[in-house]
């Protein structure tokens, strides 16, 4: 099996999603079902094929490096779960 319980735990950790122990095995089964269906891509010969990241054939547009917005902390903080004065309040990061 390509994806075992340990892989699910690792991926869930990387994705920062707490998955209860009871969900690990079912998730391993679901993800294996999807990944093994995806394996059919190996039938396609892609030697020398350039990966396609976008369908828009253009370079990244540039603009002048100037401030175009800002100066409205009340708007920025309007949806904050917790805010004080002009700051987001977040859990302690550095001990």
């Amino acid at each position: 099996m390509a994806i075992d319980a340990a892989t699910v735990r690792k991926v869930a950790k990387l994705a920062r999603i707490a998955e209860p122990e009871s969900r690990i095995e079912p998730l391993a089964n679901e993800l294996n079902g999807i990944i093994s269906w995806i394996e059919q891509l190996n039938e396609v010969d892609t030697d020398g094929v350039e990966p396609m990241t976008t369908s828009v054939a253009m370079g990244l547009p540039m603009r002048d490096d100037v401030v175009t917005d800002g100066g409205d902390p009340a708007k920025v903080l309007g949806n904050a779960p917790r805010a004080e004065k002009s700051f987001f309040v977040v859990p302690k990061v550095v001990e």
């Binding site: 690792k10 991926v11 990387l14 990944i35 995806i38 891509l41 190996n42 396609v44 892609t46 094929v49 350039e50 990966p51 396609m52 990241t53």
Partner: peptide
């Protein structure tokens, strides 16, 4: 996208997308 699978899955899919 995780280490060890990026080429096998993600890059492969982008090449198939081109096809």
């Amino acid at each position: 996208l995780s280490a060890g699978y990026y080429d096998a899955y993600y890059l492969k899919a982008l090449k198939v997308r081109r096809r």
